[in-house]
Amino acid sequence: MNNIALGRYIPLNTFTHKLDPRFKILGMLILMVSVFFPSGFIGYGVIAAFVFIALLFTKISLKMILKSMKPMIFMLSFLFVINSLVIRTGYVLFNIYGFTLYSDAVFQTLYIMVRLTLMIIITTLLTVSTKPMDLTLGIEDLLSPFKRIGLPSHEIAMMISIALRFIPTLIDETNRIMKAQASRGVDLKEGSFKEKIMAILSLIVPLFVSSFQRAEELADAMEARGYVVAQHRTRYKQLKPTYRDTVMMGGVLSLLGVIIWLSL
């Protein structure tokens, strides 16, 4: 349960928190794009410096980020082993017992590591500083130009927000059904293959049945309160860009400029 902390919304009142979610999503996308430019280690240094400043503005400690990256260490070391066996370009770093390590193997691994780390930090910056509901609103607005080609952006946003709203409820429900079935002798760890299948069915079937019932009741409640699919609604939460968004977008775009220039 402790690992869920990565990327979960932290209610603070920082510069980043106050940004308009639409621009925050755009900003994140631009940062992501800049990470993918082959701008060399200098470029990554620039991006890292930018991201570090963003972390300061969001009041996220580097420690928390590092902690949440722990699970990646295994994957990266695995990648390093593969790379060092496969990549045979660049100059020779050393040679022991007939095994030769080439410089490109190290650089490739480092590249991937830096890219991955930056991308994780960039997404974390967004999710930590934006309420899930505001994210949905941002996505809705950003998708709204596609309404003309028939994309139901409002309905998509409504679906996402209801899904978000019901996640905790469904977690509770799952826990309760698991305990109820454990009381009937279900043991997910022991037993034959057939017994395990039954054990899983005994969790999934009730969860489905109750979710369908919830969905039905929710649909009734929404309809009773005047919700009609595809009918125009007003929106309570209005998003308003501030000077902060201009500052942020200015920063992000100039960064992208620098990165493109470095990659030429």
Partner: peptide, 29 residues
């Protein structure tokens, strides 16, 4: 097996095709 616990709204734990099978689920486990 010796301490049976019935949770709130236990009807939500039914899952078998027939009532008989569902009631037998516990003893079989």
């Amino acid at each position: 097996q010796r301490v049976g616990l019935v949770f709130q709204f236990p009807e939500y734990q039914l899952f078998e095709e027939t009532i008989l099978k569902d009631i037998m689920f516990g003893p079989l486990n």
